[in-house]
Amino acid sequence: MAGSNPNAKPMNLTLKVWRQKNRQTQGNIVDYQVRDISPDMSFLEMLDVLNEDLLRKGEEPVAFDHDCREGICGSCNLFINGRAHGPEPGTTTCQLHMRKFSDGDTITIEPWRAEAFPVNKDLSVDRSAFDRIIQAGGYVSVNTGGVPDANEIPIPKSIADQAFDAATCIGCGACVAACKNASAMLFVSAKVSQLALLPQGQVERKTRVENMIAQMDKEGFGACTNIGSCAAECPVGISLENIAILNREFLAAKATSNNLA
C-alpha cells in the first residue's frame, strides 16, 4: 500500500547503530540490515521495523527517545550520518522520511554526545541539564491568580512575533549535539531573549540571565565560539541573533545588577 508516491520502491539498508547498555558501560557500533523499507516511512518507523525484527529474534530492541512524532515535543534526538536530526534542514528526526535515503545506503545512528548529556542506554540520553537551566530562572515569577488583564499591557506585534520565534525552541538539544563545543548557548538564549523582549520579563531581566548562565556553566556545557552549527541544525530555526541578545543581556546585567556574587 503505497502512499503518495506509487512508484517508490522499497529499500534495503545497512544500519550502524550505537549500542550501549547503560551509563556506566562502554558502547560500540553494531551493524544491522533492514529490508523492504518504504520511502514513505518516517525514520523512526524504520527503526520500529528494526526493533520489531530484533524483538522477534529475541534480541533487545534499540532504545531511543521519541513521543509525539510530529516534530514538537523535542523527544527524538538522533545523530544520523554525522548530522543532528539527519541531513534535512529544519527537520526533527521524527519528521525525516526515508525517501531522503536510497536503496543500499549505510546509515550511521548515534546518540547526542556531550558531557552534559550522558547516555542512558543506546540512543537515549539524559537532557535534564536543560530543565535545571530553566529552573535557574527561565520563568516569570507570577503566582496563579492576581495578575492584570491580558490586554492591560499592549505589546507591539513585531516584538510579540520575535518573542514567539524564540519561544518555539523545542528543547531537543540538537544545538548542543551539533556544536563543536557542546555549547547550550542557543537553547539558553532562546528563553532569555523571549523573556527579555516581553514586558512581563522585565522585572527579573537581570537576575534571570545571570542565574541561567551560571547554571549553564555549572552543567558543563561549552562556551559559544560563534560557529553557527547550532542554528544550522536547529529543527525549528532558532536564530543566532538570540545568542547576541543573550550576550548583550548578560553584559548589561553584570555591569548594572546589584548582585555581588
Binding site: 491568580g145 505589546i155 507591539p156 506585534k157 510579540a160 514567539f164 512581563q200
Partner: peptide
C-alpha cells in the same frame, strides 16, 4: 487563564495595536 498565561510571558498572537 488568558490573563495568567500572558503574565507568564506566553507570546500569544497580537494585532498591530499591541492587543491580543
Amino acid at each position: 487563564i488568558i490573563d495568567q498565561c500572558v503574565a507568564q510571558g506566553v507570546p500569544f498572537a497580537r494585532e498591530y495595536g499591541g492587543l491580543l
